[in-house]
Amino acid sequence: MHQYILRRMFMLIPVVIGVSILTFLMIHIAPGDPVSVMLPDHATSQDAELIRARLGLDQPLPIQYYSFVRNAIQLDFGQSVQTGRRVSTELFARWPTTFQLTIVSLTIAILTGIPLGIMAALKRASFTDHFSMVFALLGFCLPNFFLALLLQLLFGLQLGWLPMYGVSGPIWTGEGLKYLILPGLSLGLSSAGVLARMTRSNMLEVIQVDYIRTARAKGLWERRIIFKHALKNALIPITTIVGVQFGFLLGGAFITETVFALPGVGRYAVNAIFARDFPIIQAVTLMMALIFVLANLGVDLLYAYLDPRIRYE
């Protein structure tokens, strides 16, 4: 097991290097002169040259990559081209919002998806089953930006129950949580759909497996069987899906944070795309990819730990 963990960690190295090269090259592949973005209309040529030199954009490529990596290792992504503020400081101020949004959505996804899947499996072909599956299907067929607008129109504007945008403190204060419910729903429902379908089919499969039949033959109380055996075995594969969904939710933050005006990393990056502020885009891309890779590694290890049938080759 330890060796397996070590090898998996080792395999991350080329991935991380590759991601860093890709993100670094962005600014150089992109058309246009990044300095023009920073110039007011009334600026002169000398003004422009001064700014170019200040940003180090007059250096050769390998040197720029070297300093990019050296700084990135120290979590220093340089300064925003547009604002001159330290990108890392700005990002650390915004990650909490994005993480909280991700946690709320993931919680919504798990708390609605898995119970729905279980109910559907237990009452196969019943109304509950059909209802759950239609809900699940709608969950991932509704584009999340459309769902977000629908929720805003309905709960924010028509009913006035929940705030339509913005944040108010962290989620452990009730007020803060309130602001993240609509965004969390709009982002989490599609994952809930995926989880419900997965849970249902895993449950159905496990229920038919022999040892459950054996347990049933032995006359154990049916609900206990389901809980002790079926649920456990059905949920283990779900852990991998939760890992993937975590990444999906991180990526979805771009749209959700934009629609709900949440001051998170996603909206920061979208604004940076419009302003062509590459240090920010690079930093967000790099960090999100790293978090995703690490989360997946964690989930795989957890899976390996939970499911003794996995072989480590």
């Binding site: 058309p31 002169d33 023009s36 547009q82 419009f274 302003a275």
Partner: peptide
Amino acid sequence: ESGTLLSRTPDGDHDSVLIAY
């Protein structure tokens, strides 16, 4: 995107630009 517009118009690939000052 605003940044692209400002950084690419100096290259002159456009026929026209709708903008304000």
